[in-house]
């Protein structure tokens, strides 16, 4: 039960009900799609990257509370960050949700998703948006899947 409360914190509910930066970014210069074929979750991520910095970022899609909240939190945290900072956050986040270890880098509000590491079946939900980000930043044209 305590694990469940760790997973579903109020912040997660809040972002699930009211996702931030939700919608299409018409003048985006980076875009990628992510799928979680087992869940049917799908995500479109739009970015405006200028001078090595994420100027704006939005997402669209459907998914569970964990995947929606994770995408919403990610867009909040990444806005204004340099690509190097985004890369470091990706690695730190990945480490946190897969191993449960506290990463060396400060993840800020992303830490509310630390509880996911106790639910291996849900790691994919939390990381879908981040894998999609990775594809967008590396200009991958293939849709990302979590499988």
């Amino acid at each position: 039960m305590s694990d469940l409360r760790e997973l579903y914190q109020e912040v997660i509910f809040d972002h699930n009900r009211h996702p931030r930066n939700f919608g299409k970014l018409v003048n985006a210069n980076r875009h990628s799609e992510g799928f979680n074929p087992l869940c049917g979750d799908s995500l479109d991520l739009y970015l405006i990257v200028d001078n090595n910095r994420i100027i704006d970022i939005k997402f669209e899609g459907q998914g569970c509370a964990i995947s929606t909240a994770s995408a919403s939190l990610m867009t909040e945290v990444l806005k204004g960050k340099t690509l190097q900072e985004a890369e470091q956050l990706f690695e730190g986040f990945h480490q946190m949700v897969t191993t449960g270890e506290t990463p060396s880098i400060d993840l800020g509000k992303l830490s509310v998703l630390a509880g996911v590491s106790e639910f291996p079946a849900r790691v994919k939900c939390a990381s879908l948006s981040w894998h999609t980000l990775n594809a967008a930043l590396h200009n991958s044209t293939q849709p990302v899947t979590t499988e």
Binding site: Y8, G63, C64, A65, T68, F119, R122, C125
Partner: peptide, 9 residues
């Protein structure tokens, strides 16, 4: 509520 959240709970 997404089915996956139902499943976890």
């Amino acid at each position: 509520v997404h089915p996956h959240d139902i499943g976890t709970i």
